[in-house]
Simulated assay, not measured.
Amino acid sequence: MIYLADIRNWLKGFNIADYYYSGKLDANKEKAICVYQRKSTIEAVRAVGGKSSYNIKPISVLIHWNKNSTETEKTAYKLYEQLEAVSSFLLNDTKVYFIKLLQSEPISVGTDDNGIYEYVIEFDIYYERK
């Protein structure tokens, strides 16, 4: 099983943000990334005759950066490109087969109430079921 905290900790290895969160963002902190479980319409993965050998974790990553739209956009693209380059790897003791990015680029979601620009990257993590 993969948990949001596992993904948050994995993203720290990309060395992009000053702060990393899972489940809830501290909106008072700039240059932060938060990992959420995306609401998904993915059906449970089932194989004929039992469990399948893999599962899917739907993820949404919020890049909550600063009041400069260009810096925020560049940071979102930097993370997107790093995710795009990922191939199979171990996340704790779980084998991740691949990451499927759901949009062709990070999505701007405007600013929060404090004028901080934000982007979202959505993806599915395909991982080995144990």
Rank of each mutant, 00 (worst) to 15 (best):
K57P: 00
K57F: 14
P58S: 10
P58H: 00
P58V: 01
I59S: 02
I59K: 00
I59W: 00
I59Y: 01
S60Y: 00
S60T: 12
L62F: 03
I63A: 05
I63P: 07
H64D: 07
H64I: 09
H64M: 10
H64F: 08
W65P: 11
N66F: 02
N66P: 12
K67I: 03
K67L: 04
N68Y: 02
S69N: 08
T70M: 10
E71C: 05
T72V: 02
T72E: 10
E73V: 01
E73P: 09
E73C: 13
K74Y: 08
K74C: 04
T75H: 03
T75L: 04
K78G: 08
L79R: 07
Y80S: 04
Y80L: 05
Y80E: 06
Y80M: 03
Y80C: 04
E81G: 14
Q82E: 15
L83G: 11
L83P: 10
E84F: 13
E84T: 08
E84G: 04
A85P: 06
S87C: 02
S87F: 01
S88R: 09
F89L: 12
F89E: 05
F89C: 06
L90V: 11
L90A: 14
L90R: 14
L91M: 15
L91W: 06
N92S: 14
N92E: 15
D93Q: 14
D93M: 05
K95M: 08
K95L: 12
K95P: 01
Y97N: 14
Y97C: 02
Y97L: 12
Y97K: 11
F98Y: 15
F98S: 13
F98Q: 10
I99C: 09
I99V: 13
I99N: 09
K100R: 13
K100E: 15
L101F: 05
L102D: 06
Q103T: 14
S104H: 07
S104P: 10
S104I: 06
S104A: 13
P106N: 01
I107W: 03
S108K: 02
S108F: 02
S108E: 06
S108T: 13
S108R: 00
V109M: 05
G110P: 11
T111W: 01
T111C: 06
T111F: 03
D112I: 10
D113S: 12
D113C: 00
I116L: 08
I116F: 08
Y117I: 02
E118M: 14
V120P: 09
I121R: 01
E122T: 12
E122D: 15
F123P: 07
F123K: 03
D124E: 10
I125P: 09
I125S: 05
Y126Q: 01
Y126K: 01
Y127T: 08
Y127P: 12
Y127C: 11
E128L: 13
E128A: 13
E128T: 13
